[in-house]
């Protein structure tokens, strides 16, 4: 039996004008996954949102050494993995506070949203830069 695998590698300039494009790619990818047993509209919105949040976060931390952000999206069987690389100074994801809904802060919800929608979220330094890695196990029919 052939293993189903989709892999995308995308490079974009670190500019917010491309958020819509990357979100749209995520939505279209979700709609192509016919074997997914869940609500494809929900998955499409989820991919749009986590890609948008991750890219916006990478743009904020992009640094100026490498004016390109790299995004990898892979789906193998029912394992979804998204990696977003930036070349900035990075941050400690474990120290990000959970936003307090009472405080009404205008910032600081991006990673919180990703954590709520994905099974695992990790941010670490690699030889290729910092990477935000997000994984989710997709339901299959």
């Amino acid at each position: 039996m052939t293993r189903n695998r989709i892999s995308l590698e995308i490079e974009i300039p670190p500019q917010t004008r491309y958020l819509g494009l990357i979100g749209h790619i995520g939505e279209q990818l979700a709609r192509e996954m016919g074997e997914y047993a869940g609500d494809s509209d929900v998955l499409a919105y989820t991919l749009n949102l986590v890609l948008t949040e991750a890219l916006a976060n990478a743009i904020k931390h992009a640094g100026c050494e490498n004016p390109v952000l790299r995004v990898y999206i892979s789906i193998e069987e029912n394992d979804l993995c998204i990696q977003v690389y930036d070349q900035g100074k990075g941050f400690d994801i474990s120290e990000l506070p959970c936003p307090d809904p009472e405080e009404l802060c205008e910032r600081g919800r991006g990673i919180f949203i990703i954590r709520n929608l994905m099974d695992s979220v990790d941010y670490r330094k690699t030889e290729s830069g910092n990477v935000l890695e997000m994984k989710k196990k997709l339901k299959t029919a």
């Binding site: 749009n48 949102l49 948008t52 949040e53 009404l104 802060c105 991006g110 949203i113």
Partner: peptide, 14 residues
């Protein structure tokens, strides 16, 4: 579609 930045703008207005 609204992301966290959009929510932040609405919170600012509020």
């Amino acid at each position: 579609f609204v992301d966290s930045s959009g929510l932040g703008a609405l919170l600012s207005g509020y």
